Amino acid sequence: MSAAAMSASALERHLAQPAGSAVFGPAELDGLPDPVRRYLRTAIGPGTPLATAAALRMRGTIKLGRWLPFRATELLAPQRGFRWSARVAGVVSGSDSYAAGQGRMDWRLLGVLPVMRADGPDVARSAAGRAAGEACWVPTALLPRFGTRWSAVDERHIRARTTIDGTSCDVDYTLDEQARPTRIVLDRWGDPDGTGAWGWHPFGFEVTAHATFGGLTVPAAGRAGWFVGTDRRERGEFFRVTLTALRPVT
């Protein structure tokens, strides 16, 4: 069943599959490059259940012509999809979702008047990239046992390669001295200029704070947008966020 065909409750049941009995230990890191091992040891506390999904709460501002405040919840399962539900400026509400290879955007003014509705292959491919980029919020889901293939460029730069419903994603992490991510970048399918011409563009999250929730140390604040690493970065930025809660699904 596609994300578009699922009810909100059915989609959340699909995403919120509980973790098994396994917990994080040194054997999970066998064979990984040293910088990747340092990152995962920093991100996941010993004995943490190996959750593949998490429930998040966040607040921030989003650029819709101008910067507007939002509050949102998200159920995120990087290998299966996500449902991000938000209220913007108190008057626009809706959700972005992805599951079973299908993506959907559904936003309304005052809960009634359609503001944006979109689906189809382009939306789905872009949403798969979003799920891969947001996997930093569920680092247990990035362990090799769940299909992530890791490599290291040097001590501060590592790469996670995942495949989500046939869409391959390479996500590059820049680490600080404590092996925490400071920048997360990938080539993501999108139409950031709104021209109708979709293609691959650099997309990234620049991290400004970290926090620990339920044994997971994750990026807790930052800004995201298109054209990261280019002279169009400021124009492409559209999302500034602070996590207020994160609960691994166990």
Rank of each mutant, 00 (worst) to 15 (best):
A5F: 11
V138L: 07
L15P: 03
A86C: 06
W84S: 01
L246H: 08
G111K: 12
G199F: 11
R59I: 06
F82S: 05
P49Y: 04
P181H: 07
F238P: 08
E12V: 11
R232C: 07
G60V: 01
V23E: 04
G147C: 12
W107D: 00
Q17E: 13
G215R: 06
V241Y: 02
W137Y: 05
V207E: 01
F239S: 10
W198V: 02
D187I: 09
L56V: 01
L29S: 04
L50P: 02
A16G: 09
L56M: 06
V92S: 03
T73L: 09
R156L: 13
G133M: 11
P49C: 11
P78I: 02
M1S: 11
T208M: 05
D187C: 09
A100Y: 10
V228K: 07
S21C: 08
A152D: 04
T242N: 13
L243S: 00
H201T: 05
V185Q: 12
G147H: 07
R180G: 01
T52P: 01
F70E: 00
A99R: 08
R240K: 13
G94W: 05
R233Y: 14
R38P: 02
V228P: 07
F213K: 06
A127T: 07
P26M: 12
R41K: 14
A127R: 07
